[in-house]
């Protein structure tokens, strides 16, 4: 495999992980603009663990996810008191606080950045991405998926069905933070160096865009969105410096044509519906 191809696939895998990190809260009706902050917590925590304690990245990265999840859990309760644009602003502020804190944290290099000695390659990163994808897909195949959809669509009805709406929102937010932390850990251990600047608001916004672009109503959406955002700019390389203009133009056109994202729950059901109606006929026969 060429270095270029491996580089693209690594980015794809990391972006898929990030996309699921943003997808979980979005599926529960929360716009989290602080994904980069949680990625930073996971990235720095795992890098610190693997560098100073010589832990294997295979252990350090999940622990980084746990660290990000703990921060997520700690802030979820106060932050989720806000809604809509205020929640977006609160999470944005949170991400910036994390970034500013890291800039002042000399133990991980401060503004100079932090070199990471342990190194992981594409197979490990792809394994993590696959694991996160399978985990989220399995989760949405259980009643958690129905519950999250109910919470997203109509909190009051979810409440009436005896669901603890708050607990589901906190769980979605926290689990999203864990996944963001894992994404940050993967990034840190592949690029061997992290700096606070990388985990900026523009990273958070890009990640949210993957999900909005791919579709927020199904678990395929984030995968699709991350793939388009990672691969399309590469495919447009032929047009040299105009490629980002082209890329942006394509995004705008798609969002105008399909504001609900590339793929919706209805489309997936239609695809699956072919199968289930066939099996119904079998049952009837």
């Amino acid at each position: 495999m060429s270095g270029y191809l491996e580089g693209v696939l690594v980015l794809l895998a990391i972006n898929v992980v990030y996309a699921y990190a943003a997808f979980l809260p979005i599926a529960a009706g929360q716009l989290n603009l602080g994904v980069a902050g949680f990625a930073a917590v996971g990235g720095y925590a795992s890098a610190y663990l693997s560098t100073t304690l010589a832990l294997s990245p295979l252990i350090a990265i999940p622990l980084g996810g746990v660290a990000a999840g703990l921060v997520g859990l700690g802030v979820a309760v106060p932050v989720l008191r806000t809604r809509g644009i205020y929640l977006a602003l609160a999470t944005f502020a949170l991400g910036e606080i994390v970034r500013a804190s890291i800039l002042n944290l000399e133990v991980v290099g401060g503004a100079a950045g932090y070199p990471v000695t342990a190194f992981i390659r594409l197979p490990t990163i792809a394994m993590f991405a696959l694991g996160v994808t399978v985990l989220v897909w399995l989760l949405f195949a259980t009643r958690f998926g129905i519950a999250i959809t109910a919470v997203h669509d109509d909190e009051r009805v979810a409440d009436l069905m005896g669901l603890d709406v708050r607990a589901f929102q906190v769980a979605a937010f926290t689990l999203g933070s864990v996944i963001a932390g894992i994404g940050g850990g993967l990034y840190a251990h592949h690029f061997s160096y992290i700096e606070a600047q990388y985990f900026s608001i523009s990273l958070s916004i890009s990640i949210v865009l993957y999900v909005l672009f791919g579709g927020t109503q199904s678990v395929i959406g984030p995968l699709l969105g991350a793939a388009v955002f990672t691969l399309l700019p590469e495919l447009l390389r032929g047009s040299a410096q105009w490629r980002y203009v082209l890329f942006a133009a394509i995004l705008i056109v798609v969002m105008v044509i399909r504001p609900q994202g590339l793929i919706t729950g209805a489309q997936i059901r239609r695809l699956l519906g072919l199968r289930s109606s066939a099996s119904q006929k079998e049952r009837a026969a």
Binding site: I146, T149, M161
Partner: peptide, 12 residues
């Protein structure tokens, strides 16, 4: 909940 199926609404 209209973005769930009839069956999922019952399960809920």
């Amino acid at each position: 909940v209209t973005s769930l199926t009839v069956h999922e609404n019952l399960l809920m």
